[in-house]
Design a protein around this nucleic acid. Sequence first.
DNA 1: ACGAGCGCCTGTCGGC
DNA 2: TGCCGACAGGCGCTCG
Length: 273
Amino acid sequence: MPELPEVETICRTLREGTPTSPSLLGNIISGARVFWARSLETPGVEEFYSRLPGQSINYIDRRGKFLVFSLNRDSLLIHLRMSGDILIEAVDSPIAKHHRLVVNFQNDTRMAFNDPRKFGRVWLVAKPEAVTRRLGPEPLEEEFTAADLYHRLQTSHRQLKPLLLDQSFLAGLGNIYADESLNLAHLHPLVSSQSVTEEQAYRLWASIRQVLNEAILRNGSSIDWVYRGGDFQDYFRAYDREGQPCLECGTIIQRIRVGQRSTHYCPQCQKLP
DNA sequence: ACGAGCGCCTGTCGGC
DNA sequence: TGCCGACAGGCGCTCG
């Protein structure tokens, strides 16, 4: 489920709390349990157990698709990959089937990392940059300008879709929001990046930000059995709309394979030059 | 430098 | 009903 808007939604929920679940800020960690060792990227399980107790959650942030928990001495980073989710529950509730790791708090609640497909990863490190250092710019930050995007496109010779999925080019886009952004910008997913004009780059920049901001306003997208409570899926323009009419021109949305990923686009609005 | 293919995993869905 | 392949919001690796 997790691209930037979904991770941002989870991040805000954990940081700010909801009527039914209070903020995690200030929670003191009492311990942890790992049920699937490969979910823990670093350190080893024993060190993970010994370093966590006594540290409290001072802040919760997002970098790309990573959740970043700032503790007293360390940072706890979680990447949800394809099927990961974060649940807050009572410490004495049963361990659900796909719980891979839990962090217990002194207030008798716990944070569970639930991940059916086991692709997600957790890091406990002294410096978060050790994990996030290779990420590209944050698309919603003010410092990320259209001129910046244009120059980055110029320095690459790749197709737009795989480039947008490359987290070192831009942090946070995944398959859904790459397709949505390209559709809104009227750019074909196979267009070569260095052929994009300044005006097209501006359109892509504005489209990426518009799509991500609207998705965050709708708490992200909910698809299949991994449900998060967002409803941006009801506003998709291209993604998962193969065979349906383009909302702008009525042409049937096509699905092709690009870099092993399903790619949806309107052949009329998004023409190859 | 780039794209293709594959591995990592479990679950769901459609076709036969 | 059961089986089987295709597919899924990600990413790191190898190989041409």
